[in-house]
Design a protein around this nucleic acid. Structure first.
Lengths: 144, 144
DNA sequence: ATTAAATAGGATAAAATTGTCCTATTTATA
DNA sequence: TATAAATAGGACAATTTTATCCTATTTAAT
């Protein structure tokens, strides 16, 4: 459904949000460990997220990544997915047609529209804060 | 959502079904033209579909691909997707975790379960015959 | 000032997916 | 029987995605 890069992006952002709520900034190394992702590749993903103002990066010793409390509540998964994978998940035709819309639909257009709408709705209504609920108590996990 | 191979598989199967309903067998060349796909790559996909008994292939002059009337009604999109892309679409974790289930879920497990169930349900309830409805009259399209 | 720890980013490599090419085989038909 | 048209399938090539490596830059702390 999402690219690997996007999966890492969501998991990394969620972990950064979790630690930011505790008031601590986290390093790339720690993030990659905690979400079980390749370090250097995760660095690229975090660069993208930083450029898209989804995470804040601080350079230098004691630097790392963080997200403001306000943004933890405001940033939705949809923004992260869009920043990494673009709008293909939302708009692309299920059968790969370039031109597929209500006027000239593929045979499953209407059915895909519904499913994509549900997905979009979910992504637009799930904040990073929502993602962190349950993580502390170990009810949910970002690795394995 | 699906691989290119799977998109071609669904479009090709649908076109073959359409022509089989008219009582004619179709060649690889014609299929690729009508669904606007790369010929040689489509050949590989059709080989897979043939091995999985989704389409029947006939070798030699006047040969080609066809689907029995019975199978046009019975074969669902789910079988095609499974034959080409495996069960990842149905079972894979939305965030890419290898182990993600009700016991040890990722933060969006429940939400993804719902969306995937809807997708699965749609794929399991859409037959190739369903796919052909509207194609003849030009209400739907398999190319562009 | 030096050092060490951190992100930024360019270059490159590996892997997976997508796509092409060529030959073998099959089979209807002239 | 020879030919032409079709699928089967192996080998290879191109592209995209994923991943790694190395150097530059920034910055806190000694």
């Amino acid at each position: 459904m999402f690219s690997k890069a996007c999966e890492y992006a969501i998991r990394a952002s969620t972990y950064i949000a979790l630690k930011s709520l505790e008031g601590t900034r986290v390093s790339l190394k720690e993030i990659a460990e905690k979400i079980d992702s390749p370090v250097a590749f995760t660095a690229k993903v975090l660069q993208q997220l930083s450029k898209n103002n989804i995470v804040d990066s601080v350079k230098g010793a004691t630097g790392g990544f963080q997200i403001s409390t306000q943004n933890i509540s405001n940033i939705k998964l949809a923004q992260i997915v869009y920043a990494i994978d673009g709008n293909n998940v939302y708009e692309g035709c299920g059968l790969g047609l370039k031109k597929c819309n209500a006027n000239e639909p593929c045979p499953v257009h209407d059915k895909f529209v519904q499913i994509r709408a549900d997905l979009k709705n979910m992504l637009e209504n799930t904040s990073l804060y929502d993602m962190t609920i349950g993580l502390e108590e170990g009810l949910t996990s970002l690795r394995r």
